[in-house]
């Protein structure tokens, strides 16, 4: 087990290094001219030279990369060339929004997928199974950008549910609602959750569909295993057999899917954020791309990629705790 994790950890470090090189060079491979972006009409060769010297861009790429990495390793992601704002601050402001969106949507998705998948798997090809299978297959074909459009149209525009529309998102981001002096704890919490409704629902529908389908088919297979008959023969209750003997082995597939899903979830979250103008990481990234704010793009991409990889690593870790067979392979 220890050996397995050491191996995985080494791979993790190597991949993160590769990602850092990737995010660094990707920016330099992109077409576009930084000098024009920053200096605008004042882009004379002389000014450009001065600017590059100031930003350290006159050095070789390897040197630039190492300088950047040495700062990153010390926890300093640098400053925007354009707004001069610390990237650490920008990310620290945006990240909690992504976290909250993802955590809430995943809780909702799991809470819905697990019991429904169990109900469907109890009677494969039964009425409930067929309906839920068909509905989720259909939903699988509805991209999240369409889901969010319809949710906005229906919930915010047609039903006029207060606090859900795009206008509410200015209240959404700040974690300061926890300490807010405007109103009591619960009214601010309610505000926060209401503005979370549409984005989280969008993300949770997408995740739910995938989790439901994976868990359902895995449960159906697991319930035919001989050890389930064995568990029946012990005289255990159906509920206990389902949770202890079928769900535990099946949750391995579920966890694996969740791990793979995380990357897509973050990206999907970006689009939702952009559409609803929620000031999360996605909006930060897209805004900095539009502004051609190189260092912000580079650092944000790096942070997001590292987050995806670390989450996947964590999922692997939990998976080996659930299923000890994996670590021994």
């Amino acid at each position: 087990m220890l050996k397995y994790f050491t191996k995985r950890l080494v791979a993790l470090v190597l991949i993160i290094t590769a990602i850092s090189i990737g995010s660094f060079y990707m920016i330099h491979l992109l077409p576009g001219d930084l000098a024009t972006v920053i200096l605008g009409s004042g882009n004379t060769p002389e000014n450009k030279k001065k600017l590059f010297a100031q930003l350290g861009l006159d050095k070789g790429l390897v040197h630039q990369y190492l300088t950047w990495m040495s700062h990153v390793l010390r926890g300093d992601l640098g400053k925007s060339y354009i707004t001069n704002e610390s990237i650490n601050t920008s990310i620290a402001k945006a990240l909690p929004i992504d976290l909250e969106m993802i955590v809430v949507s995943q809780i909702v998705a799991f809470a819905a997928a697990i019991p429904l998948a169990m109900k469907a798997a109890k009677k494969p090809n039964g009425l409930f199974d067929r309906i839920s299978n068909g509905v989720t297959f259909g939903l699988l074909s509805v991209p999240s950008f369409i889901i969010v459009v319809y949710l906005v149209l229906i919930i915010a525009i047609k039903w006029q549910v207060p606090g859900t529309g795009p206008a509410s998102f200015t209240r959404f981001p700040e974690w300061s609602w926890l300490f807010s002096d405007t109103g009591t704890f619960f009214t601010t919490l309610k505000d926060n959750l209401m503005s979370l409704l549409i984005p989280s629902l969008t993300l949770s529908i997408g995740s739910f569909v995938v989790y439901f389908r994976v868990l359902r088919s895995d449960l159906i297979a697991t319930l035919q295993e001989e050890y389930i008959t064995m568990a029946r023969s012990k005289g255990l209750s159906r509920r206990r057999i389902m949770w202890r003997h079928a769900f535990r082995p099946s949750s391995v597939a579920l966890l694996g899917t969740a791990g793979i899903n995380i990357g897509g979830l973050i990206a999907g979250g970006f689009v939702v954020q952009y559409l609803l103008s929620i000031p999360g990481l996605g909006s930060l990234l897209i805004a900095s791309i539009t502004l051609q704010d190189y260092l912000v793009i580079q650092s944000t991409v790096f942070v997001v990629a590292v987050a995806v990889i670390v989450i996947n690593f964590a999922v692997d870790f939990i998976t080996t705790l659930v299923d000890p067979r994996i670590a021994r392979d």
Binding site: E225, E226, Y227, T229, M230, A231, H245, P249, V252
Partner: peptide, 13 residues
């Protein structure tokens, strides 16, 4: 007692 102890024991418990 089941036929195949490999498949009749829960692998994750």
């Amino acid at each position: 007692i089941f036929q195949d102890p490999m498949t009749s024991l829960n692998p994750v418990t």
